[in-house]
Design a binder for these strands. Structure first.
Lengths: 235, 235
DNA sequence: CATCAGCTTTGACCCGCGTCGAACCGGTGC
DNA sequence: GCACCGGTTCGACGCGGGTCAAAGCTGATG
């Protein structure tokens, strides 16, 4: 239980950033670091909601499935994101690791107790939850009204933005940008509500159009950001 | 400015239920009742976030649109629901009335100030926001993975449950249940990510199958709830 | 009553994307 | 080297649901 908080990579970006020294020490005492391997599931939908966590590194997916097995990724979690379901006795969605990941895990009841005595942290969590809700609602529009081409183009843009820490599409510079996708084609398909084949076809279409280059199977180069934005149905 | 709080229909169901007498009086002083006519838009996406509100009666929609005009309803609001976007300077989605509606409107800054001094209310809002987020994520799965038939059947079921809470109808599992849809076919289509024609066709298919009866254009009778659940892809 | 506008229903057509099948590619272990 | 295996790409085909067009229904208004 050493090496918590002091060397935390997301200390200033996570909910903990709202805590004073005393509260941080208190949280330090009940937090535990945990590693999750790529592909491993850490919380199962329907199971008891016993813990919550802050994601320190890696990418997690939040997914649901229909009774006949069709899956949909309903959210992605990146470092400094809050994980888990407070104020409920069961977990609503399955949480799994898309890459190797590291978390700071806290018992749910302890964390809820801390929230009631730390108004700052509660307010920050509320703000983040509003933002997540807005993003999820925006994805509703994308999933139900966009074509496959628009979905894939928009996804590449959003991952580029995420990879570079840029906060909006228009800030993407004109020159070529290369980055790694933390998701396989199948996982991209599950995010976008498509099939593997359609994702693959749309990506090669963008490559043939000169908009993208695909130097490796997981890496993407944006060669024409304006065209990509246009394909995504923006502006 | 008379007739606020004392005769409020949702006093015990809204966020106000978490307030003590003093705080309620304070909120009473800054709250204003407002009527919105069916079809009217009360908040435009992109406009300044100046007010929030509690819905007293009627049904509101939360909608977004692509740049080329395709619309998607990303949420529905029923009486006692909280309306508006706190902690942001612009409204992310358009809020319009599906039926005549009545609200209790409060300036956003005043409401945020009240939240910080009323931990109970803040916690209740946080809980509700989590629940809304879960419901929105569940709709992601439905919108992207369900067929048109499953969407329409599921929608009728959810509206039946909602109607049961509003007006006192018989329990769902038993015999036939009749209720009014507060949405036109076009609005249902916008909720489900379909077209008017497809919604209409699916409803008549359910009618021909003996699962539903459609006595009026806005009213629905569930004749075989088990079959309807099956069509929705549940159990 | 007649008119009219908005909503709904139904039919005919077609295209985007899912489905199925097969080949390809890169890493890992033998 | 070889086989293997998960992930990826590509082609052929079919269907669900979108698009277009037209007619029926209902309620408001004069």
């Amino acid at each position: 239980m050493s090496a918590v908080c002091a060397d935390c990579a997301v200390r200033d970006a996570s909910l903990c950033s709202s805590l004073g020294d005393d509260a941080l020490r208190q949280l330090h005492r009940i937090g535990r670091r945990q590693r999750v391997a790529r592909g491993e599931t850490m919380l199962w939908a329907g199971s008891d909601s016993l813990v919550c966590a802050t994601l320190l590194s890696g990418v997690l997916k939040l997914s649901a499935a229909t009774s006949d097995g069709r899956e949909q990724i309903v959210g992605l979690h990146f470092p400094s994101d809050f994980i888990g379901r407070l104020y409920a006795d069961t977990i609503p969605f399955t949480v799994s690791a898309l890459t190797d990941a590291e978390l700071c895990v806290v018992p749910r009841d302890r964390f809820e107790a801390m929230l009631t005595t730390n108004g700052e942290m509660e307010r920050l969590l509320l703000k983040r939850t509003f933002a997540t809700l807005d993003a999820t609602r925006a994805r509703l529009l994308i999933l139900s009204r966009n074509t496959a081409a628009e979905k894939v183009a928009g996804f590449v843009l959003s991952m580029a933005e995420r990879a570079r820490g840029i906060s909006d599409f228009q800030a993407l510079p004109g020159g070529p940008v290369t980055f790694e996708l933390p998701l396989t084609r199948g996982q991209i398909a599950d995010v976008l509500g498509l099939t593997i084949e359609t994702v693959s076809r749309q990506l090669t279409k963008l490559r043939h159009a000169g908009v993208l280059a695909l130097p490796g199977v997981r890496s993407v180069t944006i060669r024409d950001a304006a065209a990509l934005r246009h394909c995504a149905g923006l502006d």
